[in-house]
């Protein structure tokens, strides 16, 4: 499915007319011109953004630019967007967003896009970065978040089974992991579970993948009943080792990322799909362009519905079956049945 959806990055200028079958309301309406600034090529969020306009029959002209992870290109993008006098700018990712739209407290606003309304997507920490708060950007932009709130993640785990001790293996070099563990502990204190954490060993300033299995075994000995896999580049790379160790120890695991569940052996996970995030971002763009709502009046939020992923072979191995309701809501990953989302 990934392959089916993931399009090749479109480089250079590509003007896509998406008139669709325009309905009586505004048949000859001039399409809205949207400047899409991407970071890693065309992927699901961009696709969701585009599809939304097709589905809603909103005529748009998309001017698609890919920075291909090159920060320097972004300056050109700013100039081009200003020169084209587009109706709206879409920015993908933290770097593109911060470089093109500027931090909320930037001292040199003229060097960013300020007059054209903009929507951003896939920005991991928008608050304190591009915006002062999620309620309002206080300026001409709005956008979406894509990380599942910790509270929601815990609720999801709790809905699978009641937990008393949650285990976390983390990369001590990643500051975010520590933050996540503190946050988890705080929620645990409120809702009645403990957090047992184990840091991966670091050798030569690099985390040691080989130490993961031992840490998981240690946590198992500490009596954890669920393993939490935080979003972490190192852990993502070593996901097979980590989830494999959990499986071997008979510990169910919950992952925040899609990969650990879909392409590895984490038991289940809860994510916002990029495609959905892209659609939500387009929805906000629609509010601005079609319904003429001021961007600062549109709060920055995440999609309403979470995608729940359940890795059925792991479930069968652990014999820890999901509740029927969760099963009904979830996307089941079961290669044996040929079922993949």
């Amino acid at each position: 499915m990934k392959g089916a959806l993931l399009r090749l990055a479109i480089l250079g200028l590509a003007v896509v007319m998406l008139a669709g079958n325009a309905v009586a309301a505004e048949p000859a309406a001039k399409p809205y011109r949207i400047y899409m600034a991407l970071w890693r090529g065309w992927e699901d969020a961009a696709q969701g953004f585009k599809d939304y306009f097709i589905n809603q029959n909103i005529p748009v002209e998309l001017i698609i630019r890919d920075a291909a992870q090159d920060k320097d290109k972004l300056k050109e993008f700013i100039a081009e967007a200003k020169q084209l006098k587009v109706d709206l700018v879409f920015t993908w990712g933290t770097t593109v967003t911060e470089e093109m739209l500027g931090r909320w407290d930037a001292s040199d606003p003229q060097s960013y896009i300020r007059d054209i309304p903009a929507v951003f997507a896939i920005v991991s920490q928008p608050v304190g970065g591009v915006v002062p708060s999620l309620e309002s950007s206080g300026r001409n932009i709005t956008g979406t978040t894509y990380l599942v709130p910790m509270e929601t993640q815990v609720n999801l785990i709790q809905s699978y089974r009641h937990i008393t001790r949650l285990g976390v293996v983390y990369n001590p070099l990643e500051r975010n992991s520590r933050v996540a563990i503190d946050e988890l502990s705080a929620i645990g204190a409120r809702s009645g579970f403990e957090v047992a954490s184990a840091a991966v060993e670091v050798v030569d300033g690099k985390p040691l993948a080989a130490s993961i299995a031992g840490k998981v075994a240690g946590l198992k000995a500490a009596g954890i009943d669920f393993l939490y896999i935080p979003p972490d580049t190192f852990l993502n790379v070593s996901r097979d080792i980590l989830t494999g160790a959990a499986l071997e120890q008979g510990i169910p695991s919950f992952a925040v990322g899609e990969n650990a569940v879909v392409t590895s052996k984490a038991m289940f996970g809860g994510v916002y799909r990029y495609y959905t995030v892209g659609q939500l971002t387009a929805y906000k763009a629609e509010q601005i362009l079609v319904h003429k709502i001021k961007p600062e009046a549109i709060p920055i939020d995440a999609p309403k519905r979470l995608s729940i992923l359940i890795n059925m072979p792991v479930v069968r191995h652990l014999k820890l079956y999901p509740p029927m309701k969760l099963l009904e809501l979830a996307e089941i990953i079961d290669p044996a049945e040929g079922k993949r989302p």
Binding site: L5, R273, S307, E331
Partner: peptide
């Protein structure tokens, strides 16, 4: 509806 919405949530357009 449930079946269709599940598919919608996978990120496919209705049509």
């Amino acid at each position: 509806k449930k079946k269709v919405e599940d598919s919608l949530n996978l990120g496919l357009a209705l049509r």
